[in-house]
Design a protein around this nucleic acid. Structure first.
Lengths: 160, 160
DNA sequence: GTACATCGTTAGTCTGACTAACGCAATGAC
DNA sequence: GTCATTGCGTTAGTCAGACTAACGATGTAC
């Protein structure tokens, strides 16, 4: 544990972030998330994708076709934003949107063969990007982080 | 380690988030940050403050008066956004903005007595809010989390 | 003294999270 | 069977945070 206490003193000139600020979990989260988001977005943009694409494709692959509303619930994307995401995916022929014969309000969304291919591709891209994101941590520490974050998110999801 | 594997299977009906999605650090970060931000913002709004106020006041208190640009660097707030933050703080008489006699481009920003009082108050408010945010974790785990996040942020700050 | 950097400021972009309201279809109560 | 309620897809729009561009004015280096 000699590597501990990272980020305490800036070696260069002036800009010293107050300690009270530096160790607030909320600040660490938002600062890190800003960088993480940028990293992921840029990485996905390079293969003409966005993270919502991944979420929808993964959900379709793991749980099969579903209505837009169901996809919203599974992915956490608001159903108002889902429209646009599905438009983008349909443009690229990664999913198909067909009316549900059993319920005329519903569209049934299905993943296509190219969609499955793209999903595998995105999985690899995301693996690489996460390797970059988590570079300073060893595998055990990465697990630890995921565990801690999951527990927190879980708590705040169940207890709104 | 029997408490592990939180959040794997939803007990209620339909909405199952794909596993590949659920354990991606980037997603955990952004989901959790969204909730954290909301929690903090609402908490601070109740005492007529925003998180930027805290950042600026803390920086002034720990490192003394400074120009707006210096404050930008210390807090990570863009200097374009700093203007508005300082307006809000000045309205509330928490800081004073006076022209630097030595450099006519600069404003020197100083914390006022009410500013110091507000800072103490915000410190207490934030302590409580973080207690809520980190509720599921024991003190050791909270430290662990802060450590891990700090190391990551550090890495991505030094290596842009 | 001219070229360049810095300061405060205004304006505007982009993304993500979220709300409101719509027309329409299905469902359940009576 | 009608009617209120709920769920669906969609459009539009709000709000906040992060970030860029460009400005006039001032300071600094050569």
């Amino acid at each position: 544990m000699t590597t501990a206490e990272a980020g305490d003193q800036p070696d260069d000139g002036e800009p010293r972030t107050p300690g009270r600020l530096r160790r607030r979990a909320s600040r660490l989260l938002s600062q890190l998330t800003a960088r993480s988001d940028r990293l992921i977005n840029e990485g996905l943009a390079r293969v003409d994708a966005r993270k919502w694409h991944y979420a929808v494709l993964a959900s379709l692959h793991e749980y099969g076709p579903g209505s837009q509303a169901a996809l919203s619930r599974r992915t956490g994307i608001y159903r108002s934003d889902m429209v646009g995401v599905l438009n983008e995916l349909a443009e690229r022929d990664l999913v198909e949107r067909t009316p549900d014969p059993a319920d005329q309000r519903r569209n049934i969304v299905t993943i296509s063969a190219p969609g499955r291919r793209q999903l595998r591709r995105l999985d690899r891209v995301l693996d690489d990007l996460h390797d970059e994101l988590l570079a300073p941590l060893n595998p055990a520490e990465r697990d630890q982080l995921v565990q801690l974050l999951t527990r927190l998110l879980d708590h705040h999801t169940r207890t709104p």
